[in-house]
């Protein structure tokens, strides 16, 4: 159960929380960019934090493209959830889609490697070197989220679908 709460306006100009949403659609490249722009604009407004909104948009885009590339159906679910914590908010971008077992295993391997890496940025650099030699795809999308946004990643199977979640926390700025 998500426990959303409205953040008082006096805490920093945030206009409207709760601010969670979920959609299920057939994510073409064109639609992915539209959804990314929505996430960027919407969370830029309600969180009043352009940097964080940009990070959420990047995670949304990369995860949705991942779903297109590795999905076995033309459907994917996107959920962005803002949940209250004791000292702020947790924000999760989750993408769900059906995928082949081997691709699920590869996604989990990569996410585990990122989680276990002493320095995710250094691990990302290793993957960038590998990407230069790849013919097909970059293999960078998931690692880019971790390294460039600092969001933590996890993978789970939910209703027979692979769900990849990128999570961060947010503390509203206090007005002076």
């Amino acid at each position: 159960m998500v426990n959303d709460r409205r953040i008082p306006a006096e805490s920093g100009g945030i206009e409207a929380l709760p601010a969670s949403f979920a959609i299920r659609f057939s994510p073409s490249s064109h639609l992915i960019s539209i959804v990314r722009r929505f996430v960027h604009s919407f969370y830029g407004k309600v969180l009043d934090d352009a940097e964080l909104a940009s990070q959420l948009a990047l995670a949304t885009h990369e995860l949705l493209e991942n779903a297109v590339k590795y999905g076995t159906t033309n459907e994917a679910g996107l959920a962005v959830t803002v949940a209250e914590l004791d000292d702020g908010f947790s924000i999760t971008v989750a993408i769900r889609n059906r995928a082949e077992e081997e691709d699920i295993a590869e996604a989990r391997r990569l996410i585990d490697a990122l989680a276990g890496a002493a320095d995710p940025f250094a691990y990302y650099q290793e993957l960038m070197h590998e990407a230069a030699e790849r013919v097909d795809g970059s293999g960078l999308g998931i690692a880019r989220i971790a390294a460039e946004t600092g969001m933590t990643l996890e993978a789970a199977i939910v209703d027979d679908e692979l769900e990849i979640r990128a999570r961060t926390t947010f503390k509203p700025r206090r007005s002076t």
Partner: peptide, 16 residues
């Protein structure tokens, strides 16, 4: 406005 990871890879390949 934005560059995804597969386009980002194009710059990496160029730098190499």
């Amino acid at each position: 406005e934005f560059m995804n990871s597969s386009c980002f890879k194009g710059f990496i390949t160029w730098i190499v």
